[in-house]
Measured scan of single mutants.
Amino acid sequence: MSIQHFRVALIPFFAAFCLPVFAHPETLVKVKDAEDQLGARVGYIELDLNSGKILESFRPEERFPMMSTFKVLLCGAVLSRVDAGQEQLGRRIHYSQNDLVEYSPVTEKHLTDGMTVRELCSAAITMSDNTAANLLLTTIGGPKELTAFLHNMGDHVTRLDRWEPELNEAIPNDERDTTMPAAMATTLRKLLTGELLTLASRQQLIDWMEADKVAGPLLRSALPAGWFIADKSGAGERGSRGIIAALGPDGKPSRIVVIYTTGSQATMDERNRQIAEIGASLIKHW
């Protein structure tokens, strides 16, 4: 067993022997301040990774656009098919120029040779490549099948209805392509620590998230040296922004954090800054 596999296998073990965790309302004060600064709703939840206990939450059962955070769930569904012998990570998928959609920095470079399922998941999570996500959605049967996968996990809230990039439209009061912070946090925890996926697939999923290259201005910008984070960000229309993450000190994750916002007129930089400040408060009061 590799060191990384050992780390993920012992996530519940280490967490069980940690000192009790206590909620700190100071972080919620910052979440509410972010709402004021952005002029928009902000949803927040913080779960203990081992027990699933909610440590703090704000608007945990209000719907927010998922945006690209759905790509972690998508690759979880792909990995479940791999575990069941219905898919192979090494299978190569070929596609054409007509398949390319807006923001496809990886797939646009491989029109000639195609990409493997493993490479597509890596591109979808680490670079948020939209064509990679659409190609992977095709392998599982489309958005409705991802929703069905989530329902089978016990998540009857999260739903995907459309493809990239239309799913980022974020129309107010439109339930399409949305989740709730509580539902997303619980589902992410199941994917990373539950028995739904094999140990190898859980490790692969967290490795992809740990290698995320496009979430630097968010929670990662607030992390002290030595902290662990595996995350996936999302951005959408109407001032929408979000991030889902597993993080913790001492090089291992111990909490799940989900943050979503929508309806702001603020710039992307300002949305990023507010999420980073929430992260800084979380870490300060850990």
Score class of each variant (00 low, 15 high):
P25H: 15
L28G: 12
L28S: 07
K30R: 10
V31R: 01
K32R: 11
D36E: 15
G39L: 13
V42C: 15
L47F: 11
L47A: 12
L49R: 04
K53A: 12
K53C: 12
I54G: 04
L55P: 01
T69V: 04
F70P: 01
L74W: 00
C75H: 01
A77E: 08
L79D: 00
S80Q: 15
R81D: 05
R81G: 07
V82S: 09
Q86F: 15
E87Y: 15
G90K: 13
I93N: 03
S96L: 10
N98K: 08
L100F: 09
V101F: 08
E102A: 10
E102H: 06
S104E: 01
P105Y: 06
H110D: 05
T112L: 13
T112Q: 09
D113I: 13
G114Y: 07
T116L: 12
E119Q: 08
E119K: 15
C121G: 05
S122N: 12
S122P: 03
S122W: 11
D129I: 01
A133E: 02
L137F: 14
T138W: 14
G141L: 11
G142P: 02
T147V: 07
F149E: 10
N152P: 05
N152W: 12
G154I: 03
D155T: 01
D155W: 00
D155Y: 01
H156R: 07
H156S: 09
V157F: 09
T158G: 05
R159P: 03
L160S: 07
W163V: 08
D174G: 06
D174T: 05
D174C: 10
R176D: 07
R176G: 09
T179G: 01
M180D: 09
P181E: 02
T187D: 14
L188I: 15
L191T: 06
T193E: 07
L196Y: 10
L197C: 04
L199G: 09
R202D: 03
D207Q: 06
A215I: 01
A215G: 11
L219S: 04
W227F: 06
F228R: 07
I229H: 01
A230K: 01
D231V: 04
D231H: 05
D231A: 12
S233N: 00
G234Y: 02
G234V: 01
G236V: 00
I243G: 01
I244S: 04
L247S: 02
P249R: 11
D250C: 08
P253Q: 06
I256W: 01
I256H: 00
V257Q: 02
I259E: 01
I259C: 10
S264Y: 05
Q265W: 11
A266P: 05
M268T: 10
M268G: 11
M268L: 11
D269F: 11
E270H: 06
R271C: 12
E277Y: 06
A280R: 13
A280K: 15
A280I: 14
S281D: 15
I283C: 15
K284Y: 11
K284A: 11
W286H: 05
W286Y: 06
